[in-house]
Design a protein around this nucleic acid. Sequence first.
DNA 1: TTTGCCTTGCTACCTTTGCTACAAGCAATC
DNA 2: GATTGCTTGTAGCAAAGGTAGCAAGGCAAA
Lengths: 211, 211
Amino acid sequence: MEDIKSKLEKYYPQFDEELKDLIAAKGFVKTFKAGDIIMQNGQFLKNTMLITKGMVKLLTEGEEGEEFFMYYLEPGQACALSFVCATKNKRSDLDAIVTEDCEAILLPIDYMDELMVKNKSWYYFVLDTYRSRFRELLDVIKSVAFHSMDERLAYYLVKQKNAFGSSYISITHEQIANDLNSSRVVISRLLKQMEQKQKVKLHRNAIELLA
Amino acid sequence: MEDIKSKLEKYYPQFDEELKDLIAAKGFVKTFKAGDIIMQNGQFLKNTMLITKGMVKLLTEGEEGEEFFMYYLEPGQACALSFVCATKNKRSDLDAIVTEDCEAILLPIDYMDELMVKNKSWYYFVLDTYRSRFRELLDVIKSVAFHSMDERLAYYLVKQKNAFGSSYISITHEQIANDLNSSRVVISRLLKQMEQKQKVKLHRNAIELLA
DNA sequence: TTTGCCTTGCTACCTTTGCTACAAGCAATC
DNA sequence: GATTGCTTGTAGCAAAGGTAGCAAGGCAAA
């Protein structure tokens, strides 16, 4: 239990003592391996998840199983969907896949309503999570609606760089194509052009962002 | 004041007595004309808006002023953005334009925090609004990410039909092109194809959805 | 009635994106 | 070192979507 509390102190310092104690008492830690699917379209959620380690990738699926990358969740962040769905026991709309071995504190959704009214720091946290996810979705919409593939690719690479904190991005062209719902050939083509413009340096299984 | 309360009873029946009384006491009614811009990108929000008449169109803007339609707000609905931005006094990300003369009850955002903790029916309303708007954004993303222009056009027309409750949609090709961030020629082309497939009947300044 | 504006239809043409196919390169394994 | 599989580079082609330009028709104000 003390274990949970120290994790909360590290990654969720904005929580007040009362909240941290409650989560430490009622929550539990769960770990996931890279590749695990921790949430799937259509599934019911029973817990709110507070990420404390690793990285989770959120994506949406098309009718024919196409994927479309939306955003990453890092330590200190929670899944907005788990709030949304929690309250009314609704199904989720997104898939969440672990990209780096991951650890999260799970809190049964039964406590949600009570916490929202009783604890101010939780209330602010939830609203903040909503706001940032809402914003994230808006950015996604803007990028697809207003930008062509080359711009989206550049935006995507920057997002990767920020998420993983390195200009050396380990990824294949194929994976990028999946995330952007494009095709491998197109991505390779555009990356070549970017390389000619000195924007990236291409390696096998990796891309280096220049400047 | 009684006026406000009867409007609330009609369009927001899920509110409990206490909440309706409070809104009646602290809120005020404001009317807007078609074409009015009631919220603009970058603007601070001072009030939460509960629509009681007319129709408001939410759209996002690209860097070069391109528009992109997202969804409509009807009586009984509130702007999720006004919740999001309210709490932390953040700027809005969307534009809201009145498409049909509109009336709304405005409630200063100062009451938001208090209401959330004190009033359950308000709390549920806010979460519900979040969920439906979140879903709406997800649908928008899916439609742009996975579907070609002809499918998006069909989806758009159905959305219009549902919003205005009529298969006879008063709109020009140019306006549709703006909403979908496409071009007039493309929309006219696709509409012609739809007409040949007996899916629509084209009129001047209007489109009739068949079946 | 005439004038002018807006809407729609249509043509020609270009760019972007996507698909198929194939070759070359790297890496791991036997 | 040969085999196998995954990744990347390229070429050729097709479809979708965007641009420019112009003509015709409707509608309304002068």
